[in-house]
């Protein structure tokens, strides 16, 4: 469903991402593991249109090319990003944040269905609709950010280090929710440092080092792999 090939990004002379190729199937959860500075954020921002890929890159979502589209049209095409730092509308209410998720005409028609799906995954949000988003705890804000992305009715949900800054308990709660999202047919692609928990709920994983993909495989195999355990699981 998502097919990425030849994806490179440079900031000035610094090559942050080099020839990345990756695919995600329908309803699949895929994790890209990498250390700080490996290029994880650059990779996910390039997919969402927040940084411009070098010429020659191919990003296909359900057959549609995304590599030249501006960020707002990529959302229209069906790819939603939950960014690092969340970028919520912090002075608006949770209800307004979610409702803005369904801003596009394509998503507006599905808004009430999408909202039910958000509540099914994060039941807590139903009671918090009138709260100002910026006054919530980090974990709750992450739920709103994911909920807002779900409101765009995406084919693919991108998550940029969703566990960053969350307590272990909240991280577990968050990772438990992701398979429920994938079960509705929305694919999930995330970049993470927290490899153990993210791998245990993923179908497949990729390893990103110095801007290059250095390994890939089924999540269960990666969890067993000695190299991965050494590099990412701290064992």
């Amino acid at each position: 469903m998502l097919e990425v090939s030849n994806l490179s990004v440079s900031y000035g002379r610094h090559l942050a991402l080099s020839d990345v190729a990756l695919s995600v199937g329908q309803g699949e959860i895929v994790v890209v593991l990498g250390a700080n500075g490996a290029g994880k954020s650059t990779f996910i921002k390039a997919l969402a249109g927040l940084v411009t890929p070098a010429p020659g890159a191919r990003i296909l979502l359900g057959g549609q090319s995304l590599e030249r589209l501006p960020a707002h049209q990529i959302v229209e095409a069906g790819l939603a990003l939950v960014p690092e730092g969340r970028h919520l509308f912090s002075t608006l209410t949770v209800a307004e944040n979610l409702s803005l998720g369904a801003f596009l005409p394509r998503t507006r028609a599905q808004a009430s269905d999408s909202l039910e799906r958000v509540f099914a995954v994060f039941p807590k949000l139903r009671q918090r609709l009138s709260q100002i988003a910026g006054t919530m705890s980090g974990g709750e804000q992450q739920m709103v950010a994911i909920g807002r992305a779900m409101m765009t009715d995406p084919q693919l949900l991108l998550l940029d280090e969703p566990s960053l800054g969350l307590s272990p308990l909240l991280t577990t709660e968050l990772f438990r929710a992701l398979p429920n999202i994938a079960a509705t047919g929305t694919s999930v692609l995330m970049v993470e440092q927290n490899s153990h928990q993210s791998l245990s709920i993923s179908d497949r994983g990729y390893l990103l080092e110095d801007g290059r993909i250095t390994g890939e495989g089924a999540a269960s195999d990666l969890l067993q792999s000695e190299a991965v355990q050494k590099a990412y699981l701290g064992m």
Binding site: G49, H72, V75, H87
Partner: peptide
């Protein structure tokens, strides 16, 4: 209005606004 809400969204967080499909 929806357009008004989009303007407010851009004022609060332009990156977040792009991510819900608003042409900033």
């Amino acid at each position: 209005t929806r357009t008004g809400m989009a303007l407010r969204a851009v004022a609060v967080d332009p990156v977040g606004a792009q991510l819900v499909g608003i042409d900033v």
